[in-house]
Amino acid sequence: MLAPTILTGAIVLTGCAFYGLITHRHMIRLVICLNILDSAVLLVIVLLGYEPDAAAPIVRQADLQYVLGLPHALSLTAIVISACTTALMLGYAVRVHRLRGTVYVDRLTRWRG
């Protein structure tokens, strides 16, 4: 019963993130929306390895039931990448704000022609 609820939650989170990405023009909010999007995926990854009443995958006894290790490794990778890209985007946003004086994407240059 747990899994479908969490999966639905992740899908709704994705929807929220896209709503935010389309409606907002504030750079920091765009970054936050992307973070929400990443969190939704991470939720699903961790859920894929979950088993009720299983132990953490540190094999001290052979007969115990453990959760799957692979999704945890994948989620660690995805978390690190998401954190780095977030930091970079924030750095660029601060730079753009300092050099161009606005944090709204639509008030930046409209390059035409």
Binding site: L48, P57, Y66, G69, P71, A73, L76, T77
Partner: peptide
């Protein structure tokens, strides 16, 4: 189901932490 690394980790890598062994 995805392949279960947990049981073969110790034999293959000598590490008992499956997540570290995968990473």
């Amino acid at each position: 189901r995805p392949v279960d690394y947990t049981l073969r980790t110790v034999r293959d890598t000598g590490a008992i932490n499956a997540v570290t062994a995968i990473l």
